[in-house]
């Protein structure tokens, strides 16, 4: 019984194979360089390139060659190679979009040898990388120059911003991690170091801030996290109002959240990046207050 079904399967496979080629009329064959790395690449390349009864693609990882069999009256190698490039694989004639390549799984990140090397100067990407680096250097040096008591609340507020950014990205796990970091920052605050204005406000918000952060840290649901974040933001706002700020902080408002009741948040950027809806409604909202930096640079 078993062997018979095996034989049947073999026959079926053979038939389908023969059919596969027989079905392509006016067939032409061409062999072309296509970059890739693993079995997963092979599957993606062949699926993207092939189209029923019109084109069939076979790709080998060793020689990095794709064999195209196609109906020359219905399609052409350019169309097939374009489809392959659009799912992330460089070909002799078309290069994959950078963002699609970057999203390939780690095991598929082949070396992009088909891409001509940059000739003069640096590409824009490298330039912008340098930019980001120098930017972050500046930031650290600034932070370390702040007086001790400002670092106290500053760490809390900075953790809040990281949490906010995680919510902007709708990332539950990171949000939870950032909330844990926020709790640690809250615990590290030495109340005796706080200024006269800060002290009563801190006493006032401490309990609520800790509770909200714990909810966010423990929750696996984005909606729960955002609910707690709305309340947390109101408390952090009170803190920001009394403590000295390293940079300008923007108090921003989303009128839609919670069925039109609205919610607020704080950000270091004037541009709206809404933590309550993330990418779905990234730019929903407006700045209601600009809290100027009180630290001289």
């Amino acid at each position: 019984m078993k062997s018979r079904s095996n034989i049947l399967m073999v026959i079926a496979v053979l038939l389908s194979h023969i059919n596969g080629f027989a079905q392509i009329k006016h067939a032409k064959t061409e062999t072309i360089n296509v970059s890739g790395r693993c079995e997963m690449c092979k599957k993606t390349i062949e699926e993207a390139g092939s189209s029923k009864k019109i084109a069939e693609v076979k790709w080998g990882s060793k020689n990095q060659l794709a064999t195209l069999v196609y109906n020359s009256e219905k399609t052409n190698p350019d169309e097939i190679l374009k489809r392959i490039a659009l799912v992330g694989y460089d070909t002799e004639r078309y290069l994959a979009p950078d963002d699609v390549y970057a999203q390939l799984p780690g095991c598929c990140q082949y070396e992009r040898t088909l891409r001509p090397a940059s000739t003069s100067g640096h590409s824009e990407m490298e330039m912008s990388h340098e930019h980001i680096h120098s930017g972050s250097h500046q930031k650290t040096s600034q932070e370390s120059s702040l007086p001790q008591n400002e670092v106290q609340l500053q760490a809390v507020i900075e953790s809040y911003f990281s949490l906010k950014d995680a919510l902007v990205r709708s990332d539950v796990t990171v949000a939870s991690e950032k909330a844990t970091a926020l709790i640690a920052a809250i615990k590290a605050v030495d109340m005796n170091q706080l200024s006269a204005e800060e002290h009563p406000v801190w006493m006032d918000v401490l309990k609520s801030v800790t509770e909200r952060s714990e909810i966010i840290a423990q929750s696996a649901e984005l909606s729960r996290q955002r609910e707690a974040f709305a309340l947390l933001s109101d408390e952090i706002y009170k803190l920001v109002k009394v403590s000295k700020q390293e940079t300008t902080v923007y108090y921003q408002h989303c009128p839609m959240y919670n069925n039109g009741k609205g919610a607020n948040w704080l950000s270091k950027e004037s541009a709206i990046k809404n933590p309550y809806y993330g990418s779905k409604m990234l730019t929903c909202g407006s700045t209601t207050e600009k809290i100027e930096s009180s630290v001289k640079k």
Binding site: A166, R169, S170, D171, T173, G278, S279
Partner: peptide, 16 residues
């Protein structure tokens, strides 16, 4: 947009 934000979450978790 939704695809992009989940990608960012994976790659750049620490910078915000």
């Amino acid at each position: 947009f939704s695809k992009q934000s989940s990608m960012d979450g994976m790659n750049h978790d620490s910078h915000g």
